[in-house]
Design a binder for these strands. Structure first.
Lengths: 207, 207
DNA sequence: ATTTTTTTATTGAACGTTCAATCAATAAAG
DNA sequence: CTTTATTGATTGAACGTTCAATAAAAAAAT
C-alpha cells in the first residue's frame, strides 16, 4: 500500500481510531495495539506519526477542540441577526453539534477532561477552550447588562452547558441533544428576561 | 504495631490515601505502591483489606457518595422550614459541602466519573447517586409546579450543580464554593419565580 | 517499455519497564 | 504459644517504544 502522502490520511485514521477505542474500553485500556487494530494498522506506526502515544492523545484532544470551535464559528457566521441572544444561541447550538454529542467524541472528551488535571499539555488546551467559551459569552451578555451581571450570566450558562453535556455523557443511552438544547435555551431566556431583550420563540424550533 | 481491630482504621487510612494520591498524580498513575506510601504502609496490605486495587477504588467512590448523601441529609434534617425552596436549597448546599469541594475529593470524583463509563461496579454507584439527586429535586419541584415543568427544572438544576462542580474541579485554583452556591441559588430563584413561591433572600447569606 | 534504483511506508518481534498480586517470613499482641 | 497484622521480595502479565527487515510505489536508467 505504501504510496506518498499517507501522513494526513493516517493521522486522521488514528485519531478517529483513538476515539473509537476510548468509546469502547475507556482511556485507561485504550492501548496502542487496540487503537492500531481499530485503524487496521500496526502499533509501531503510532510512534512514527505522533512520536508516541502521548502525541496521539494530544492530537486527538486538539481535533475535538477544533471541531467544537468550527461548529460554533460556522453557526455564528451564518446569523442574519446580530443580537446578543442570537450569538449566544449559536454558541449553545454549536456546543451540542453533531460532532460533539456522538458517543465516541463525548466519552473521549470526558476522559480528557479528567486527564487534563494532571497532564500539562492537555491542561493548556483545556484552559484555552474554557476561556474562549467564557469570553465569548461574557462579551455578548455585556451588550445588554452591567458587567458584574454579565460575568455571572456567562459563568452560569457555561456551567449549564458543561453540566448538560457531562450528564449526557454518563447516561447509558447517550446525550439527548434536543432536550439539552431546550434546557440551555430556556435558561438563556431566563437570564435575558430582566433586561428587555426581544424574546424570540427560540426554543420552539428545538422540540 | 500489629494489634487487633486494625481493619476499620486501615480501611479509612487507605481510602484517604487513595484520594490524596489521585489528587497528586491522577487515577492513571495512582499505583498501589504510591497509595500505600501515602498511608505509610506496604503495598501488600491493600489486597489484604480490599481484595485488590479495584476493591479499594470502589470503596473510595462509595465513601465519597455516602459523604455527599450525609451532607445533604443533615442539612435537610436541620430545616425548620418545610417549603420546597428550603429543601432544594439544602440539597444545593449539601452538594457544595466542605467534604465535597476539597481538592482531593473533587479530583477523585471527576476521575471516577470518567472511569464509571466503563467499569460496571462504579457505574452502578454513579447511577444510584444520579437518580437520587434527580428524584429529590423532582419531588420538591412537583410541589409547586406541573409535573412536566418539574422534570425540566430538576434536570436543569442537576445539570447546573454538576456543571459548576465540574468547572470548579478543573480550575487551577480549585472550586470557588461561595460563588458556585450563589449561582445555583440564583438559578433556583429563577426557576421558582413564576410559581408564586415566597422569595427569600436566600442568596444574601452566601456572599 | 522494461528494468534498476531510490524513496517512502509499514511491519512485527524483541527489549526494558512497570504494575498488581501473591505468599512465605516476621513481628507484635493477646 | 497462638493469633492477628504486616512486610517486601518475587512472579507473571501487559505495556510503549524501538529498529532491522520488508514491501510497495515512484523515479531513473536502459
Amino acid at each position: 500500500m505504501p504510496k506518498v502522502g499517507m501522513e494526513p490520511i493516517r493521522r486522521q485514521q488514528l485519531i478517529k481510531a483513538t476515539m473509537a477505542a476510548i468509546d469502547e474500553v475507556g482511556l485507561a485500556e485504550a492501548t496502542v495495539m487496540r487503537i492500531a487494530r481499530h485503524a487496521g494498522v500496526s502499533a509501531g506506526i503510532i510512534s512514527h506519526y505522533f512520536g508516541g502515544k502521548d502525541g496521539l492523545l494530544e492530537a486527538t484532544m486538539r481535533q475535538i477542540l477544533t471541531d467544537l470551535s468550527h461548529a460554533v464559528a460556522a453557526r455564528r457566521h451564518a446569523l442574519e441577526d446580530d443580537s446578543p441572544r442570537a450569538h449566544i444561541g449559536a454558541i449553545i447550538e454549536g456546543n451540542f453539534d453533531r460532532t460533539q454529542v456522538t458517543d465516541p467524541a463525548a466519552k473521549t472528551w470526558l476522559a480528557f477532561w479528567a486527564s487534563s488535571m494532571h497532564k500539562p499539555a492537555l491542561q493548556r488546551l483545556q484552559n484555552v477552550n474554557d476561556r474562549r467559551l467564557y469570553a465569548n459569552l461574557c462579551h455578548q451578555f455585556k451588550r445588554v447588562m452591567p458587567r458584574a451581571d454579565a460575568r455571572n450570566a456567562a459563568r452560569g450558562l457555561a456551567a449549564m452547558i458543561d453540566g448538560l453535556w457531562l450528564r449526557g455523557a454518563l447516561t447509558p443511552d447517550g446525550l439527548d441533544a434536543p432536550e439539552a438544547r431546550h434546557l440551555a435555551h430556556t435558561y438563556l431566556d431566563q437570564l435575558l428576561i430582566h433586561y428587555g431583550c426581544q424574546q424570540f420563540a427560540s426554543t420552539a424550533e428545538t422540540l
